[in-house]
Computed example of a mutant assay.
Amino acid sequence: MIQQRAAGAIMGALIGDALGLGCHWYYDLDEMRRDCGAWVDGYLSPRPGRYHEGMRAGEPSQSAILLRMLLHSVLAHGEYSEADFTRRLDEDLFPQLDGTPFCGPGGYTNQSIREAWRRRVREGRSWQDCAGHADTTEGAERAIVLAALHARRPRRVAEAVSSHVALTQGDEAIIAMSTAYNIVLSQLIAGQRLGPDLVPALLGLVHDGELPFHAVTRQNLQPPRPGEGEAARAGTFASPDALLLPHYAAIAARDPGIRIEPAWKAALVYGLPCAIYQQLPAAYYLASRFADDYESAILHAINGGGQNMSRAMLTGALVGAQVGLDAIPRRFIDGLMDGERLCEEALALGALAGRE
């Protein structure tokens, strides 16, 4: 049922965040194995001198804190209120920041949030003028809440997510990829599966004007008939290619001639850094390969190293949406700070999604 899948997406992301806390941003994988063990399979406290130093196993990073801030805002109002969310940033988060990376709740403040803080606090800009140029996934991660809330309304997902991500991300291509990820996630919460058949249906919505992407080609990417290209609807985003990425990742995961072994090496294939165009392919691949196995998907996302926290959040939401909250192993909830309360909040959001 949709409540279970929505809650699975939220909890899947929050667990992925906390699993990454103690082994975050190791780009030397040999060093990661020495510090964290041959296979990370649970929550770890960060080592001295590493990112998030001083925090404890199972605690959230700032990415999860922001996701939960948006979740609380939606639950308080029964809908998404940009004014309420930005008020929470102004009153609850920004007073704890100073514009430097290693300051603020969660032990680290990402680039897009630092840029928004600088423009909002130091320069006094309005929230319509606070977005920076980070090419990272922070906006996509927060917006998982909105994908769950509006799971049955793809157009509303696209509108809400793109507007929300634009608060902190100023690059249209990054907004498009963040929006496409959450459109795909919403379809999984609504009951679809992450596979080669999902994206053709989404492209149909593009051609019908339900999703804000510009497309000239016909079904199955066939060329347009004479005159169709000129009449094609120009949407918010340049093309629907961001929606094609999960399609090809799913094909790769199912093709017996393409093997990434062990699966965590998908991170090496697609890239260890933070950029969204390196994070999303690995997340889609792992979520396609382990669509029914949350534990395998999330642990391979973590053990790939690099920006494994974001990779695990994105993967965890996709797989959590497919398996539902009850199929997430209990040990991950038990070891998570405020795990029971988070489950209650995630289920409350799922109830809102069910009523839409």
Results as ranks from 00 to 15, higher is better:
residue 327 A to Y: 09
residue 296 S to P: 09
residue 17 D to G: 01
residue 48 P to E: 11
residue 51 Y to V: 08
residue 190 A to H: 08
residue 274 C to G: 12
residue 125 R to N: 13
residue 258 I to G: 12
residue 11 M to R: 04
residue 69 M to I: 07
residue 295 E to N: 06
residue 69 M to G: 06
residue 108 Y to R: 04
residue 112 S to C: 09
residue 346 A to D: 05
residue 15 I to Y: 01
residue 168 T to R: 03
residue 263 A to S: 12
residue 265 K to V: 09
residue 109 T to V: 01
residue 330 R to Y: 12
residue 248 Y to I: 13
residue 324 G to N: 03
residue 107 G to M: 04
residue 18 A to P: 00
residue 251 I to S: 07
residue 62 Q to D: 09
residue 94 F to N: 08
residue 50 R to L: 09
residue 299 L to E: 04
residue 348 A to D: 03
residue 24 H to Q: 07
residue 91 E to V: 13
residue 192 Q to C: 13
residue 93 L to P: 01
residue 245 L to Y: 07
residue 134 A to L: 06
residue 144 I to A: 06
residue 45 S to T: 11
residue 271 G to E: 04
residue 122 R to F: 10
residue 175 I to W: 00
residue 155 R to Q: 10
residue 155 R to L: 09
residue 282 A to D: 00
residue 324 G to A: 05
residue 88 R to N: 10
residue 354 G to E: 15
residue 51 Y to I: 05
residue 104 G to S: 02
residue 63 S to K: 06
residue 299 L to W: 00
residue 112 S to Y: 03
residue 102 F to N: 10
residue 280 L to V: 04
residue 41 D to K: 05
residue 171 D to A: 14
residue 158 A to G: 01
residue 60 P to T: 08
residue 53 E to Y: 05
residue 40 V to S: 04
residue 317 A to M: 07
residue 52 H to Q: 02
residue 337 M to T: 13
residue 333 I to L: 11
residue 57 A to H: 04
residue 341 R to V: 13
residue 253 A to L: 01
residue 82 E to D: 14
residue 292 D to L: 08
residue 256 P to H: 11
residue 338 D to G: 08
residue 23 C to N: 06
residue 328 I to A: 03
residue 47 R to K: 15
residue 207 H to Q: 12
residue 269 V to I: 11
residue 250 A to H: 00
residue 119 R to H: 08
residue 42 G to S: 12
residue 22 G to F: 02
residue 169 Q to N: 15
residue 208 D to V: 10
residue 125 R to C: 12
residue 294 Y to H: 07
residue 209 G to C: 09
residue 122 R to K: 14
residue 6 A to P: 04
residue 102 F to W: 11
residue 4 Q to R: 04
residue 28 D to A: 11
residue 163 S to W: 13
residue 339 G to Y: 01
residue 82 E to A: 15
residue 33 R to M: 01
residue 100 T to W: 13
residue 89 L to D: 00
residue 110 N to C: 15
residue 83 A to G: 12
residue 90 D to G: 10
residue 258 I to K: 13
residue 9 A to W: 01
residue 338 D to S: 11
residue 354 G to Y: 10
residue 153 R to Y: 09
residue 272 L to W: 12
residue 306 G to E: 02
residue 101 P to A: 15
residue 171 D to E: 14
residue 151 A to G: 07
residue 118 R to E: 15
residue 72 H to I: 14
residue 244 L to A: 10
residue 190 A to N: 10
residue 57 A to W: 06
residue 48 P to D: 10
residue 275 A to T: 14
residue 168 T to I: 06
residue 167 L to T: 02
residue 121 V to G: 05
residue 333 I to T: 09
residue 35 D to V: 12
residue 41 D to N: 09
residue 81 S to K: 12
residue 87 R to I: 10
residue 146 L to D: 02
residue 346 A to N: 02
